[in-house]
C-alpha cells in the first residue's frame, strides 16, 4: 500500500527563488502519475522532495498516511531513476544493481537471485561484469532501472529517464517502462518535459509551470479540456492555434487544434480566407501553414494535399472543437 499525499508543499531557496509553490496532490496506490512541464518548472525539485533528497520549506508529505517530512531518504523505501542514470563508476553493473540490497544487508544468495532476475527482465544479463563507462546510453538506462526495480520499493520515482536517449530508443524504452509498471504493480511518479511520454504512460498527468500546478487530470481530460492556454499549447504537436476572438460579449483567446480545422479550396460560409505559406509533407500526413488576417495557422491533413505554396485556401475551424480562454488570465472558459 503506497499512496502519496502531498499537501501544500512549497520549496524556497534562500535567495528567495520559489521552486515549488503550494503543491497539493494525492497519488493513489499503483497509480502512474506523470509530472510534466517545461525545464525549470520545479518538477524535478518536487520529485526530489518526494524522494527525501530535498526538504520542503512548507507543507507535508504522507506515504500511506504516515508523515514523512523529516524522515531521510534511506528510510522512505523509494527507488529513483535519474536523468543522468547516476551509475556508480567504480562498480561493475552487478554491483551497481546490488548496491541497495547490500545497503540493506541482504544475504549473498538473495542478492544473486534478485539481481539475476531483474537483469534478465531488462535484458542486460550479459552486461553484469562490465563497467558503466563501457555501456551505451540505452544499456546504462536499463541498468539504472534494474537498480531501481531490484529492491521492492513502495514508490518508484523516475526523473526524465529518457531525455538523454535518441528518439527510437526513447520510444522502445517508453513502452518497456509501461510494461514494467504493469508487471510491478507499484506506484510510479514520472517527471518529464516531453508531453508524448506523459500522454502514453500516465494514468494521471500533473502539469506544472513555474512551480505551480496548472492542471491535474487523465491524459484525455488534459488533451480535450486544457485548463489554460499554457496547458493547451504544451500538449499537442503542432501546437494549438490561437487567435483573438469575441465570445459571449467578451474578448477571448480561441484555441483550435491543427487537426480540427478544415481546408477548402472554395469559400464556404464562415470560412476564413488564407494563403498557404508552407507545406510540411510527412508522408502519412501533411502540415499546412497558412496565413490569415487573424494570424498564422497550422493545419493537419491526412495523406497528401493538393495545395501549393501561395495558393489561396479557405479554412474553417470546427466550432465544437474550439477552446475559449480568458484574454487576460488565460484560464479556460467552459
Amino acid at each position: 500500500m503506497a499512496s502519496i499525499r502531498l499537501e501544500n508543499i512549497s520549496k524556497v531557496y534562500d535567495d528567495e527563488v520559489h521552486a515549488v509553490t503550494d503543491f497539493s496532490l494525492h497519488i493513489s496506490d499503483r497509480e502512474f502519475v506523470v509530472i510534466v512541464g517545461p525545464s525549470g518548472c520545479g518538477k524535478s525539485t518536487m520529485l526530489r522532495i518526494i524522494a527525501g533528497l530535498e526538504e520542503a520549506s512548507k507543507g507535508d508529505i504522507f506515504f500511506s498516511d504516515k508523515k514523512m517530512n523529516s524522515i531521510p531518504s534511506r528510510q522512505r523505501n523509494v527507488s529513483m531513476v535519474f536523468q543522468s542514470y547516476a551509475l556508480f563508476p567504480h562498480l561493475n553493473v552487478f554491483e551497481n544493481i546490488a548496491f541497495g540490497l547490500r545497503a540493506r544487508k541482504e544475504s549473498k544468495k538473495t542478492i544473486q537471485t534478485k539481481v539475476k532476475e531483474v537483469s534478465s527482465l531488462l535484458g542486460i544479463e550479459h552486461l553484469l561484469r562490465r563497467r558503466p563507462k563501457q555501456l551505451s546510453g540505452g544499456e546504462k538506462q536499463r541498468v539504472a532501472m534494474a537498480r531501481a526495480l531490484v529492491r521492492d520499493a513502495d514508490v518508484y520515482l523516475l526523473d526524465e529517464p529518457l531525455s538523454n536517449l535518441d528518439s527510437q530508443l526513447r520510444a522502445s524504452l517508453r513502452s518497456e517502462i509501461a510494461m514494467l509498471h504493469h508487471t510491478a504493480q507499484k506506484t510510479f511518479v514520472y517527471v518529464t518535459h516531453d508531453y508524448t511520454e506523459a500522454m502514453t504512460l500516465a494514468d494521471r498527468i500533473v502539469v506544472m509551470k513555474d512551480g505551480v500546478i496548472n492542471q491535474v487530470g487523465t491524459p484525455q481530460e488534459i488533451f480535450d479540456c486544457p485548463a489554460n492556454t499554457f496547458v493547451a499549447k504544451f500538449f499537442g504537436s503542432p501546437q494549438m492555434n490561437f487567435y483573438e476572438c469575441r465570445h459571449n460579449d467578451a474578448d477571448v483567446w480561441a484555441g483550435i487544434r491543427a487537426e480540427d480545422i478544415l481546408i477548402e479550396e472554395r469559400s464556404v460560409d464562415d470560412a476564413i480566407e488564407s494563403e498557404v505559406l508552407m507545406i510540411e509533407r510527412l508522408g502519412h500526413e501533411s502540415l499546412v501553414h497558412v496565413c490569415t488576417e487573424k494570424g498564422q495557422f497550422i493545419i493537419r491533413e491526412k495523406g497528401k494535399v493538393p495545395y501549393e505554396v501561395g495558393d489561396r485556401v479557405y479554412i474553417k475551424p470546427i466550432s465544437q472543437a474550439i477552446h475559449y480562454f480568458d484574454r487576460e488570465s488565460g484560464i479556460r472558459i467552459s
Partner: peptide, 15 residues
C-alpha cells in the same frame, strides 16, 4: 563530480 550518484546512494539506503 556528478552529484547525482550521491543522491542515488542516499535513496538506495546508505547513511
Amino acid at each position: 563530480l556528478d552529484t547525482t550518484i550521491l543522491d542515488a546512494a542516499r535513496v538506495e539506503g546508505e547513511n
